[in-house]
Nucleic acid binder design. Structure first.
Lengths: 244, 244
DNA sequence: GGAGCCCTTTGATCCACATCAATACGATTT
DNA sequence: AAATCGTATTGATGTGGATCAAAGGGCTCC
């Protein structure tokens, strides 16, 4: 039985059961009672300032994180200094799954803007997901989705040309903003050209030139980080217009 | 002398509890009683001939597969015909995790040689892993390992040059053969130059040339698909020898 | 509100890998 | 043992994106 103990307003507002991201996040598919159980599990929240690390490669793995506000990038860094951005994460998405396998994180997670995450202690998540079938299943889906996403990135990096990569990136961003209730056609990128380039396996100059060419062709209006997509079918055409 | 209980020799030989791959596979970390429970779950086995599909993109997702013998590649194919090999899998490794998220497979799994897999019905795996903590945890580790592996491939595709990619590939293969009790320095590749190239984001000619250059430099002895690694530190040096 | 700095854009040149092409090799079939 | 076919090697040439370089914008932080 749960207590009658007074709960502060802040706690109520930040619980999964009250969170408007729950359709995108771990609670998806749970019934109200189950979401309440999840509420108890999500112990604390953490604010991360822009450019700060949520975790670093090598940090002991204890929790996964659900993004409540803001956005992140993850990257891997080689000894020789080369780095590769492995993903950009938005609200409702889960960070830290890389850490499960080796009991320590294997990449860095860095806030692209001032952000806030829900801390989900992993051993407790495993415990609860042994009891709550729908939670277990949703968690497995989230991990699997990450694998599928990664395969898409491999396809992009392994067999697309620069403009195709950028078109795919923009369409993906658009789709994710849409899922969060924002405009599909107008958004603000939180990452730099250099970070986009790293993610897409291109140099920042190449990214910039591709943006300019898209602009010249009337596909998008680019003003620094502010993007307006003017011709979604046109962007899709770039993706499929490949002479195999 | 065989058991008094009438169990066929085939069944005994193919159960997890008797399988010499169990340290590499799903049973890792389970105690004997728990492995027996897993035995019951792994209902059937399936033989797949060389070049045949274990599953195709779009197939309904019902099970994951543990490789008992042989090897596979997975690939994704775009509408325009371009394809990308997303991985090569060896004995003890698990296939099909991509299917969980969308309830259907999102890539193709094709046998590189005559192979055999254990069929693990997914809903029963979820059920059992709700009861067996160590199984749950091992399964999560396997999924996470796949994510980490994918990040490594992204690094490779996004920021390495051709020879670095091939060196990384060879070292990875060597390490995986070693883990299976084979020679670290001498092995037989089951995939073609074209498949290696697709995986590494290179054309087959580039792969072939890189092999030749490694041979000229005395790093490996290449005879078609038979590889002998002569200078492992040398290969590692190629990987780190990058002027950042 | 101004100084400084980071980020972005654009141009000129270079180079690693792709592409095109021909030959050689090896396994399988007959 | 010859014929066939998929696979691999090697050479010549082309090109997309990297690199080098410079200038222009727009934040951020005093």
């Amino acid at each position: 039985m749960k207590s009658v103990v007074p709960i502060t307003a802040v706690e109520i507002k930040t619980a999964c059961s009250q969170c408007n991201l729950r359709e995108l996040c771990l609670p998806f598919g749970l019934d109200p009672r189950e979401v309440n159980q999840l509420d108890e599990l999500v112990g604390s929240r953490r604010k991360i300032k822009r450019q700060q690390h949520l975790y670093r490669s090598g940090d002991p793995f204890e929790a996964i994180y659900a993004i409540r506000a803001g956005s992140f990038k993850t990257d891997v860094i080689l000894e020789d200094g080369r780095d590769q951005v492995t993903g950009f994460q938005m609200t409702g998405e889960v960070l830290g799954l890389d850490g499960i396998s080796g009991e320590q994180h294997s990449c860095n997670a860095i806030a692209l803007e001032d952000s806030e995450v829900c801390v989900i202690p992993f051993s407790r998540l495993e415990e609860l997901s042994r009891q709550v079938e729908s939670l277990q299943h949703q968690f497995h889906k989230i991990m699997s989705r990450e694998i599928v996403r990664d395969h898409g990135v491999m396809m992009l990096l392994g067999s697309m040309r620069a403009e195709e990569r950028l078109a795919a990136f923009l369409l993906n961003m658009s789709q994710r903003f849409t899922a969060r209730g924002f405009s599909p056609s107008e958004f603000h990128l939180r990452m730099t050209r250099d970070e986009i380039g790293s993610y897409l396996g291109l140099k920042l100059e190449t990214v910039s030139r591709a943006f300019s060419r898209f602009q010249d062709e009337g596909l998008v209006a680019v003003q620094q980080k502010h993007i307006r997509i003017l011709d979604t079918p046109g962007l899709k055409r770039i993706l499929s217009h490949h002479a195999a």
